[in-house]
Computed example of a mutant assay.
Amino acid sequence: MEFFPDRAHVRLRSCVRGGGYIDAEEDGLRISMVRRRGLLTTVWKVHRIVRDGADYVLLYGAAYGRYLACSPGRRRVVQRNYNSEDQDNVLWVPIRAGDHRDDVLIRHGRHRTRYLDVTGYGDDVDESTRWNWVVEPLGPRPEPPLLPPPRASCLPVRRIVFRQGNGRYYQRLRAFSFCGRSVFFLRNVLACLLDEDVDGITLCVKAGSQGRLTPLASDLPYNCLPLHIVVLNHRTAAALGLRYPDFDVLL
């Protein structure tokens, strides 16, 4: 558990299959492996919880805010919202791979014979088929990165549900339909609707009622699923400790 302090930013590098990092794909649903470590989609934030006296690690993406979860039907790891206090597909337990090693196995919290991997998982796997992971911590970045440049598109069309907050209370929910994936254009629309300075607000995505706020620094996932946005001014975001990991490309 010491590899995963609460609210830390990490990357997970595989010790098998030629290395590579767990990556959140642009559809906001699938998981894959990539070799390039400087991508925002390879950054995960730690969410620690205690349930029934047991400690668990949850991991949600810095790009889309969605949680690493096991999918029983397809027996794969996917991105999912965290919607319920009883939801268990997002629970993970890190285990040292050996007495003198820094890599870890990541076991599912409720299925003791299932381990985190990307190609699929099964019951009663032996030690040779388990994926070991090196946990690479990232330090905080005091300023947000520049948003991606605007890109015009009319697809996909999704429902944006949003509210403004200051960390202690939120305004009422409002909603509208938004075309495309550009976070640059989305910020402009929300600034106009809320009569705010466009350069003085932070957009955060909340992936499910139990999910933590994640600052949006990438374009929206390529799907039509509704997106829940919380709009904070910059001083409020700093007060809540919403920092950014190191987004510099590391070759």
Rank of each mutant, 00 (worst) to 15 (best):
E2A: 12
F3C: 07
F4I: 12
D6S: 02
D6I: 06
R7H: 05
V10A: 04
R11D: 13
L12I: 06
R13P: 01
S14M: 11
V16P: 00
G19E: 11
Y21P: 04
Y21T: 02
G28E: 04
S32I: 06
M33E: 09
R36V: 09
V43F: 01
W44L: 04
K45V: 03
H47L: 05
V50Q: 04
D52Q: 09
G53F: 09
G53Q: 14
A54C: 07
Y56N: 02
L58I: 02
L59W: 00
L59T: 11
L59R: 02
A63N: 03
A63W: 06
Y64D: 15
Y67Q: 11
C70R: 11
S71C: 12
P72W: 10
R74I: 03
R75K: 10
R75S: 13
V77R: 00
Y82F: 14
Y82L: 15
E85S: 08
D86C: 03
D86K: 04
V93D: 02
G98H: 08
H100E: 08
D103S: 03
R110W: 05
Y115L: 05
D117T: 11
T119Q: 14
R130A: 11
R130M: 15
R130H: 13
V134D: 03
V135L: 10
L138C: 00
P142R: 14
P142H: 11
E143A: 14
E143H: 14
P144Q: 06
P144V: 11
P145R: 15
L146I: 01
L147V: 13
P148D: 04
P150E: 05
P150G: 05
R151W: 07
S153D: 10
S153N: 11
R159V: 04
V161D: 02
R163V: 05
G165W: 01
Y169D: 10
Y169P: 00
Y170K: 01
Y170T: 08
Q171Y: 06
Q171D: 15
L173W: 02
L173R: 01
S177D: 04
C179Q: 08
F185D: 11
V189G: 00
C192G: 14
E196V: 01
D197C: 11
V198E: 11
D199W: 00
D199E: 09
Q210E: 13
R212Q: 15
T214L: 01
T214F: 00
S218C: 12
P221D: 10
N223Q: 13
N223I: 04
L227W: 08
H228L: 06
L232Y: 15
G241V: 00
G241M: 04
R243F: 12
D246R: 07
F247Q: 10
